[in-house]
């Protein structure tokens, strides 16, 4: 299976955007080689601003550019973008609804060897809680590119979560990303697997394993965490009566919480959340971390068994 990191797709998309729209500008905080904004820098040096190791000013400067009619993409690692500069994003970007696109890479445990200090596992929660902010977690390189191109066309703040590691390509080139729309990748009637980011590929693997046992799992990519496709969540719950969420994020505050909110208010069916269990990560190879912290297809499969048992008990 072909693989690509979502950050690489971001770098590619930025170059396309740069060619299409002269108002697109890009800011980074001394991580251009890692976030892949360097691709834009090479083509459009006059529209690229390295702000140095100063994330608060990165966000504030992006706000000022947006207030002057530019379409800034502000990039750094997810941990610094959403943590270090949280209040700048809140007060200088989200509150005045400025047209800043925060594209943060190296999210989640798969940062790997750098360890817990660099592993953003609360970024979805931090961005999701901000009024006027939209949150997108692309599942593969195709979706990342389409999402980046799509958000450049809409007004207002957006957070796009990108990863360091290569992930399997799920979508074909003609895939169209739509904000606020979930994407059903596989139909199924027994259990619904709702995933985002790198966990979508894992959910697909889990569904294959479940199918061998005669369990039909629906796999839905919830890339648009905010706005969340409530109809798709409700329909999945109604049709299957059992929901599993999977995300490379703390199970508190992220996709699992967002889905739980919708289920609780509409169709309270059994739910199991796969994610980081409210703990910090550590250094290690990405795959070793995913296994140790319970974020693989096998863990989704086990969660499916648990939720199916609970469904029978209801």
């Amino acid at each position: 299976m072909e693989k690509m990191a979502t950050r690489d797709a971001y770098g590619k998309a930025l170059v396309k955007l740069g060619e299409q729209n002269s108002n697109v500008v890009v800011l980074d905080a001394d991580l251009a080689k890692s976030t892949k904004t360097i691709e834009f820098k090479k083509k459009f040096p006059e529209r690229f601003f390295d702000m140095g190791i100063a994330e608060q000013n990165l966000m504030g400067t992006a706000a000022g550019l947006a207030a002057s009619g530019k379409i800034p993409f502000a990039s750094t690692f997810a941990i610094f973008a959403t943590g270090r500069a949280f209040e700048q994003i809140r007060n200088s970007i989200a509150y005045p609804h400025l047209n800043v696109k925060i594209a943060a890479s190296h999210a989640g445990l798969t940062v790997g060897e750098d360890g817990a200090s660099h592993q953003a596992i609360a970024d979805i929660a931090l961005m999701r809680v901000l009024p006027q902010m939209k949150v997108i977690v692309p599942a593969d390189g195709i979706e990342a590119e389409k999402a980046v191109l799509a958000v450049a066309e809409m007004d207002g703040p957006v957070y796009i979560r990108l990863g360091r590691s290569k992930v399997p390509i799920i979508y074909a080139e003609d895939y169209q990303f739509e904000l606020g729309k979930a994407s059903i990748i596989k139909e199924g009637q027994d259990v619904a697997l709702l995933a985002c980011g790198i966990m979508v590929a894992e959910a697909l693997k889990a569904a294959e394993e479940l199918a061998k046992e005669g369990i039909s799992a629906r796999v839905i990519n919830m890339a648009s965490i905010k706005p969340l496709d409530k109809e798709a969540v409700v329909a999945a719950a109604r049709d299957t009566g059992a929901v599993v969420t999977a995300e490379e994020h703390n199970i508190i505050g992220g996709l699992g919480s967002a889905v739980a909110e919708v289920l609780g208010e509409n169709v309270p069916v059994p739910l199991e959340r796969v994610g980081v269990s409210d703990t910090f990560g550590e250094s290690g190879k990405p795959q070793d971390l995913l296994e140790k912290y319970g974020l693989t297809a096998k863990h989704i499969q086990e969660a499916a068994y648990r939720v199916l048992n609970r469904k029978r008990d209801v």
Binding site: Q56, T61, G64, L65, A67, S68
Partner: peptide, 16 residues
């Protein structure tokens, strides 16, 4: 502390 950063962004836009 946030205002000067926005002013920097406006300054960059003006130059651009």
């Amino acid at each position: 502390g946030q205002g000067l950063s926005a002013a920097v962004g406006m300054g960059l836009a003006g130059k651009l």
